[in-house]
Simulated assay, not measured.
Amino acid sequence: MSSSTDKTQQDPLQAEFKALIEDAEKLLQHAASLAGEQADELRQQIQLNLQRARSTLAENGEAVRQRGDAVRQAGETYVQHNPWQALGIVAGLGLLLGLLLGRR
């Protein structure tokens, strides 16, 4: 998946958390001066933002899991159809990693 698609999917999540942080800051700043209905209204607004952030997180978490499953399946299919190439790639990466760690 392209990085622009990943960025597009991250934007709503970032906006939700930014709104949540801003509301939490408002609550802290006005906690001493608010009483009664004003405090209840602010608490309700923060709860609503928390619920939206949780649902957005759940939706994005499911999308990430689905993409991970698709990548895993594609990798398994490649290895099944090209076992020697996969073995060569893994051996090459192992050799490279061994050389890099051996230099330490």
Rank of each mutant, 00 (worst) to 15 (best):
L97D: 13
E41M: 08
R52Y: 13
A39S: 02
V79P: 01
E62D: 12
Q66C: 14
E25Q: 15
G36V: 00
K26V: 07
Q51N: 13
A31E: 13
R54H: 14
L13Q: 15
L13S: 09
Q80T: 08
L96C: 06
S55W: 14
M1R: 13
L97C: 06
S2I: 00
T8K: 15
F17G: 02
G102V: 03
R65I: 15
A58M: 08
S2T: 01
A19Y: 12
G61M: 09
E22T: 10
L100H: 03
G98C: 12
Q66Y: 01
V90C: 08
A35E: 15
V90N: 01
R103F: 14
A31V: 04
T8D: 07
R54W: 14
Q38M: 06
G102Y: 03
Q47W: 00
I21D: 11
V64L: 07
D23V: 10
A58Y: 09
A39T: 03
L96G: 10
Q44F: 03
E41R: 14
S3Y: 01
Q45S: 11
Q44M: 05
R67G: 00
E37A: 13
Q85F: 04
A35R: 13
M1Y: 07
L34V: 07
V71W: 02
D40A: 09
Q80Y: 09
Y78W: 11
A86V: 02
T8L: 15
L27N: 11
Q38D: 02
A32T: 08
L27W: 12
R54I: 12
G61R: 04
A74M: 05
A32S: 04
T8R: 14
L20N: 10
I89Y: 11
P12Y: 04
A24Q: 05
T5P: 00
T8S: 13
Q44R: 14
E41Y: 06
A32Y: 08
G88Q: 10
E62V: 00
G98T: 14
G68K: 04
V64A: 15
V79D: 06
R72F: 07
S2C: 06
D40L: 12
L95D: 10
E25M: 10
I89G: 09
Q47L: 12
A35I: 08
G92R: 10
P12L: 00
G61I: 10
Q47K: 14
S33R: 12
M1S: 04
I46W: 12
R72W: 06
G98Y: 03
P12G: 05
E76C: 12
D23L: 15
G94T: 09
S33E: 15
L13W: 10
V79W: 00
L48N: 09
R43F: 01
A53R: 11
Q10G: 08
L27R: 02
A70H: 11
I89E: 15
Q73V: 14
L42T: 06
R72P: 07
D69G: 04
A32D: 12
R43I: 01
L34E: 00
E25K: 13
